[in-house]
Design a protein around this nucleic acid. Structure first.
Length: 566
RNA sequence: GCGUCCGUAGCUCAAUUGGAUAGAGCGUCGGCCUCCGGAGCCGAAGGUUGUGGGUUCGAGCCCCGCCGGACGCACCA
């Protein structure tokens, strides 16, 4: 099903051919910012005018003379050479009827499906997940949902940090400081505690530092005891992560940690050396890309160990060879920009024909505009934060709707609390650092999850008051201004959704859903549904039905659930 | 020093990738409940888009120079 913009582009192409102006240039056709300029506009005449060195208004007039619009609406030349389109109520009604019958609300599956691996969340073993992980996790999940919905083959992979030098201290701590009773109640906190104790001890005593190093070497050599301790750390941490993902309602297709690639690393380095891509420098094996930076990409440390540059390279190879990845998207914070530039450069020089993207994002700040920390200066544990979100939502829901059953309140609070946290991330441009505020994200006013959820709930409650179910076969005839405004907004969904992937910006979808809901409230104020005459009522009911389906679809794509009551 | 990202209303943020008179929310001021959930709607005030140039029909967006901030720059991930 073509979008409105595509239909208009088609008519424009016809008109251009008819007036001998056909061109390969893509025709930009978009909704207008100001309703006084109609519903859609194109700058085709101005683009053409520049190319042909002709007056754009004259060209626009010529195009207009050949433009067939009678079944769509009207068109006119305006300003410096815009062509403005106004959609007729009849056309809008017909389009909306089509969308009403379509489960996907008019969104086409791409005709060029790609296999896209999305790498996000990536917490570290033996460390708690903290606020720093929330953006990656929520952004990655939303992008995965949207990309999948658009018809691509998406593989999500949680690239867990389960290998690294910190395990020397963790294992040393395990052997000397572990209190196994703590391991049962709160394992990750205990792992952090023994790490810190070992770290503190190592700073005071060189012998202990050496002991930690020895433990690391033994682990790397595959010594049984250390391997067993490491595996236990991985298991305990993974269980803890699972609880958080469960609360967030997020799943991964794979969770292949860094250690998964260990067996490949020596071969990868060997190949790089043989192909002349890497060289030895100060005892380390490095790859240079002077165009990017004077700093090398370190493939093997001078002590023979491997860093994440190497595992990441091996990971690209694996994803391309085993999964047929055509694109790999890394949802990782902006500070790692250079690392990914170097990684991508190497990946391409290795000959992998894969579209590599670093989807960077800014930091979360506290009210003091500094990196968000707890009072003691640590990063804020994610689980506590999410639980607080649900708790705060519970208080609000209990106050606003005391009639809900205990069970309903539990489930609604989770949707509202978690939804609020997710939406506050996703409604913001991913690159801007943002200030974390409970009051703002849980506010019932403005661009927040609770506001959108409430718009949905209000709409759904109309259906509960209906004396008898209404057949969905009725065709709609829109008349009122508010009906048409809402309908036009709904018709834009198939145009908006693909745009999210242009710059990997879910905030485009969030912003659309907010506008849509505001438009719905306008309709809701001025167009009574239940009390309207039968024919009008059926039209409005169908409008409500499409709106609520669309809002649910859109928010679900962002990873946000909707209650029927709240 | 080099590199990356950023600077928009009092505050928090948008702006369909170069389109017309830069939009929301919060806060401020003023209206709207015999009406489907007022958790709402309508209106007003609030801006030299950090700054100076350039490119063109047209710039918050592209190019160059300053000012201010965040982050990254050899064996941690």
């Amino acid at each position: 099903m073509a979008t409105v913009a595509e239909i208009l582009q088609g008519r424009l192409q016809d008109a251009l051919r008819a007036s001998d102006l056909a061109s390969d240039e893509p025709l930009q056709t978009a909704p207008t910012a100001d309703p006084r300029h109609g519903d859609y506009q194109t700058n085709a005449a101005m683009v053409l005018g520049k190319k042909l060195k002709q007056n754009p208004r004259t060209l626009a007039g010529l195009i207009l003379a050949h433009l067939s619009m009678s079944d769509i609406g009207a068109a006119e030349v305006a300003g410096p050479g815009f062509i403005n389109f106004r959609l007729s109520p009849d056309f809008i009604s017909r389009r909306l009827n089509q969308l009403a019958l379509d489960e996907r609300i008019g969104v086409e599956r791409t005709d060029k499906p790609r296999t896209v691996v999305i790498d996000f969340s990536s917490p570290n073993i033996a460390k708690p997940m903290h606020v720093g992980h929330i953006r990656s996790t929520v952004l990655g999940d939303a992008l995965a949902n949207i990309t999948r919905f658009l018809g691509h083959n998406v593989i999500t992979d949680n690239h867990i940090g389960d290998w690294g030098t910190q395990f020397g201290k963790v294992i040393y701590g395990w052997k000397h400081f572990l209190r196994s009773e703590n391991l049962n109640s709160d394992p990750v906190t205990e792992l952090v505690r023994i790490y810190r104790e070992a770290d503190a001890a190592a700073q005071k005593d060189f012998g202990i530092l050496e002991g930690c190093r020895q433990e690391l070497v033994k682990l790397q050599q595959g010594e049984k005891e250390n391997r067993r301790i490491w595996q236990q750390c991985v298991d305990l941490s993974t269980e803890e992560f699972a609880k958080i993902y469960d609360l967030l309602g997020i799943r991964f297709d794979y969770q292949l940690g860094e250690s998964f690639y260990n067996p490949e690393l020596p071969r990868v380095v060997q190949e790089l050396l043989e192909r002349g891509l890497a060289e030895v420098s100060d005892g380390a094996v490095v790859v240079w890309d002077r165009a990017l930076s004077e700093d090398p990409f370190i493939i093997r440390k001078s002590d023979g160990g491997y860093g994440y540059a190497t595992t990441d390279t091996a990971t690209i190879e694996y994803r391309v060879k085993h999964w047929g990845a055509e694109a790999i998207w890394y949802v990782v914070g902006a500070p790692q920009h250079l690392h990914f530039q170097q990684l991508f450069s190497l990946g391409h020089r290795l000959g992998y024909e894969v579209d590599l993207q670093h989807i960077a994002f800014g930091s979360i700040l506290g009210e003091d505009r500094r990196l968000m920390r707890t009072r003691s200066g640590d990063s804020v544990p994610l689980r506590a934060l999410l639980e607080e979100a649900v708790q705060r939502a519970t208080a609000i829901v209990a106050e606003k709707n005391p009639d809900l059953s205990e069970q309903e309140r539990l489930s609604v609070s989770r949707m509202v609390g978690i939804g609020a946290v997710k939406y506050s991330e996703l409604s913001q441009h991913r690159m801007t650092d943002y200030i974390f505020s409970w009051e703002k994200m849980l506010s019932l006013h403005g661009n927040t999850a609770p506001y959108l959820q409430n718009a949905y709930v209000r709409c759904r409650s109309i259906f509960r008051k209906l004396p008898a179910p209404v057949s969905a076969t009725t065709s709609m005839t829109l008349r009122e201004e508010a009906e048409l405004d809402l309908a036009k907004k709904i018709l834009q969904f198939p145009e908006v959704l693909p745009a999210v992937l242009d710059g990997f910006k879910p905030n485009i979808l969030a912003s659309y859903l907010y506008d849509l809901s505001a438009q719905f409230h306008g309709f809701y104020e001025s167009c009574p549904v239940l009390s309207a005459a039968t024919e009008v009522r059926e039209t409005r009911l169908m409008l409500c039905d499409i709106f609520s389906r669309l809002l649910r679809t859109g928010l679900n794509l962002l990873g946000i659930e909707l209650p029927e009551k709240m």
